[in-house]
Design a protein around this nucleic acid. Structure first.
Lengths: 343, 343
DNA sequence: TCAGGAATTTGTCGCGCGTAAAGTTTTTAG
DNA sequence: CTAAAAACTTTACGCGCGACAAATTCCTGA
């Protein structure tokens, strides 16, 4: 049999009885060749498992079919989940996703962009570290590569942004908490590392003032991305030192809340609403694990699927039209209140 | 100034006053050129930020500097964490890691290997789906690309395997549970999707028999990778239907345990050891979140760091020596009992 | 100071494919 | 049935770099 391996497109074109340029055209877009030609190529493809050399292809293409996906911290299930959605969508759209995590550090984020640039991707879906990002680097990157930001916005960078409307979402849960009990204190890191923290802090303050309450920021120490650990350790401290002037705590994100819940449990505080409960605790993000805390965490759900979908859609449009938007578009999705048992 | 962009190595060699082949040699290994030459190149490098074209480099190199990392499900924090370790180590060893998740499916796993093959990586670190893998595909892949398996072993495939000694780890926690209270039932999925489940089931049965107890397998329904959900839903059912003939439950992995804990909480069962507790629950893996369950989960810790380190070490050795091992090596790491509050 | 080896330069080829132009065949429309 | 359009083939070039051989320059040590 013709079990002699095919070495390159030349040889494959020979055994399929089609010229090399046409075969090349086929691999670029199977629908661009006549049906009869397509069939002959695909017949050959079954007999000899040939695939164009990845490097040779991309060296010469004006534009590759690669898209980069950069998230700030992949070991955070929130980002893992949204990355999974985006990856799948890119794949379905005919692109090859390349997933990179910044591991929570600016150096790695810059490295990631650098790596991506040398790969000449068709476009990039980018969730920056936010406060921890190097704006100059990102700006210069976005100027060279079609970039769509998600999750964390950096003003005027990239072609578009898709993310949560923190003002709406935080406002909503603050309102809910005020309506159903004591106004919440806001539990957060003093110098937060996660992207949306400042927006949420501001949204909390505004919402409280609008409702006629004095904001109560409980700002704890700690850095890095071990939010549960910080929530637990500082939660223990806050409870011990009786720093809470209210029985309701809104955490800046679910991971802090998970840690705080663990601390409350250790301190023997019953969490929940209604009779016999000492404390209400709410979070933010609808983290994949917040359905399994004890008690289940009341929180605000981000619409993962929509954010992923619209981001990819926009990038694909951008890449395929070849032109950038006339005006940068910012799309904010509303959060959804997820009432569970903790508040 | 010479702000005119450098287009290729030729031009860069010109502005740095060094010949192109020597520049090429420098990029391949900076220490392979004379110090004075290195300095001149690096001086030029600061003035003109040139980088060799990724695709052109890899097209011609016998061996690329890319290594693939494939995990079964990246949205599982366990794999996210170990992937993070491995990524960092590869990076430090001078390789470019390419992280791929199989998203829990065989088709995606095969696709991933296919993608990797077309990238001609120097080597691959691969945690297969296990039972869900397509052995033929993986075998043929490992025959073509230096492959080190981790987490989940497939007999006789790849150059080496690094993972947990399930017999030891499960034996240890079974022994601990028996010594300190009633012998445990084993809570697991009837047809598990996660890789090490069968080994753990067998290890449990063996340990129980060795200790003179009748094994008690609580096998619940459910598929996919939503282990917490399954643990919760089936935990509710098991508790409601009083299917437990003991007050001690060992879960096949921490994620199931997290779900089970949530169910027990909902049912008003106090989890923990000693007076006033209705049930002891233990897990397995020391999942990143098991420190923050209520109560904190007693479990067996896998030595993430060592598994990652040794796997990468072995792959680097393999790649740099250019030869495959005379004999496939299987290295099992001992689990460590992590005593917390749940059992 | 000089030999000899190491480092470098020069020149040249090849990798596998994209791409373009010009000529040929096939298909489609009138 | 014919002419135009579409698809294909042939031919040829270029991408940016790795790899190699031969010639040259540099550095080391006695």
């Amino acid at each position: 049999m013709g079990q002699n391996r095919i070495r390159n497109m030349e040889e494959f074109a020979a055994v399929s009885g089609i010229s090399r340029p046409t075969v090349s055209k086929y691999f670029h877009d199977p629908d661009s060749v006549r049906a009869s030609t397509r069939e002959r190529i695909e017949a050959a493809l079954e007999r000899y498992d040939y695939r164009p050399n990845f490097y040779a292809v991309n060296q010469n293409r004006r534009l590759t079919k690669n898209v980069g996906i950069v998230v700030p911290y992949l070991a955070d299930p929130f980002f893992a989940e949204i990355a999974r959605c985006i990856e799948t969508l890119c794949y379905a759209a005919g692109f090859r996703p390349i997933l990179l995590s910044s591991h929570g550090g600016q150096a790695q984020e810059n490295d990631n962009l650098d790596s991506l640039r040398s790969i000449r991707p068709a476009g990039v879906l980018f969730a920056p570290l936010g406060r921890g990002s190097d704006r100059a680097v990102i700006e210069s990157f976005a100027a060279a590569v079609p970039t769509v930001l998600f999750d964390s916005n950096i003003e005027d960078v990239g072609e578009a942004f898709f993310g949560l409307d923190n003002v709406q979402s935080v406002g909503m849960i603050v309102e809910y908490l005020c309506r159903t009990g004591e106004p919440p204190a806001f539990f957060e890191m003093r110098t937060p590392t996660n992207p949306n923290a400042f927006k949420r802090r501001r949204a909390y303050v505004e919402a409280m003032e609008r409702l006629g309450h004095a904001p109560d920021l409980v700002q704890v120490e700690g850095g890095g991305w071990d939010f549960e650990e910080i929530g637990y350790r500082e939660g223990m401290r806050v409870i011990s030192e009786r720093r809470l002037s209210t029985n309701t705590v809104l955490c800046s994100n679910d991971r802090l809340a998970i840690g705080f819940l663990a601390a409350a449990f250790d301190k023997g505080l019953r969490i929940g609403r209604g009779e016999g409960h000492a404390l209400r605790v709410a979070g933010h993000d609808d983290h994949p694990f917040s359905r399994f805390t004890c008690p289940k965490l009341t929180t605000v759900a981000q619409d993962y699927a929509s954010i992923a979908e619209r981001s990819v859609e926009e990038l694909v449009r951008l890449v395929e039209s070849g032109e950038s938007r006339p005006r940068r578009e910012t799309t904010l999705f509303e959060g959804k209140l997820i009432m569970r048992d903790s508040a």
